[in-house]
Amino acid sequence: MNSCNLNQDQTDTLKRFLNLIIPPCEKSGLIGAGEINLPEFVNKYDSNTLEIIINDLDIMNNLSIKKYSKSFTLLSEKECEHIFEHLKSNNNNFAKTLIINTLGCYYQNDSILKNLGISSKAPFPDGNQVISGDLNLLDPVRKMSRIYRDI
């Protein structure tokens, strides 16, 4: 992960948090969100929110130290979840920006899309195949009498 404007603590906290919210999946081979370059994504598309994200990471780490006397990265999965749930119970929007950006970044990542069988190419110029659909299904509607009010 590229750290961009994050210090080491923030980078580590971010990676730990991302792998908790979208963990790797051994069965399907999907990587966890900790492997994607979220800071670069945020810098490119939503840079105004970087400060909010950094602040949320600091809050998580500070609470970890206060509560468990160790940084967020060293907490057990259960302890991490507890920290996150505690912060969310005080502020339902806690880490919302971070999570939304993570989903935006994760589901445009080439390797993830390939694994899911989704094209990662730009829609243009190839486009997509969509069947026309069977217009004979309209037969019952064609048999309806006029349903608009004529004036």
């Binding site: 969509v130 069947i131 026309s132 659909g133 069977d134 217009l135 299904l137 309209l138 019952p140 509607v141 309806m144 349903i147």
Partner: peptide, 25 residues
């Protein structure tokens, strides 16, 4: 002529037909 409804258009068309409701591309 109308643009492609796709599979989803057929699925919804059948549903509207079951209800006897109007639908149209």
């Amino acid at each position: 002529p109308p643009i492609a409804m796709g599979r989803m258009g057929e699925v919804m068309g059948r549903g509207f037909n079951k209800l006897g409701w109007h639908w149209w591309p």
